[in-house]
Amino acid sequence: MFAPADKAQADETAQSLAIDEGKKLYAVGCASCHGTGGQGTTDGPSLVGVGAAAVDFQVGTGRMPAQQPGAQVPEKPVVYSQAEIDQLAAYIASLGAGPAIPSEEKYGPEGADIAKGGELFRNNCAQCHNFTGKGGALTHGKYAPSLEDVDPKHIYEAMLTGPQNMPSFPDGTMSEQNKKDIIAYLDAVNSDDTVEPGGLSLGGLGPVSEGLFAWVFGLGALIAVAVWVAARTAKAKKS
């Protein structure tokens, strides 16, 4: 058992150990674009002050390390383990103060108001991510990704830090409770357990997919039926 002072001491040691490990990982995986001290280069922005939350989001969703230049850096399979991500985050956080990785009670479902979250989502998020978070287009090939199956922690971090072209929604303008409500709403309307009472949701994309469905399967089926109704019945073989 540690005494409180010892505990703090031990935490600090662990922290500086993590920063050292993170620095090594950074030098190998990130420094070529973001500069040796995180000051940024022409290939990548400065990471001073972006905070641990930004690192956890970018690396935790596989967006970083980026593979190739393009309109937007896409989500990819994650390269680092969570322990390594934490070390990287600790190192970046040590470069300048920024938002920390949120604890689970911040994005957990307890105490969340789903309906309020829906209203907030429609006001702040739906314009890019669609009514229920199916994603949408931005200018020149950029896009707002689908929020399906995204870890609530990453959604929280994205709101907090504003990755790539997404604006940030800091606690000053969107309270922690607001963020919690939004995440609870998304879980209610866009998860594997969401009930779609009417049947197939057709991608949740609205009238375009509905129109295609009506043409292909609706009218298609009816034309197939019409062909049967109007076709000639098989004749008896002439003998």
Partner: peptide, 21 residues
């Protein structure tokens, strides 16, 4: 008035890169 919190906004609430209604 911030539409999320229904509180009046202060300049310090609004960060660079953020979006508020």
């Amino acid at each position: 008035v911030n539409m999320n919190t229904h509180e009046p906004l202060r300049p310090s609430d609004v960060a660079v890169g953020s979006l508020t209604f």
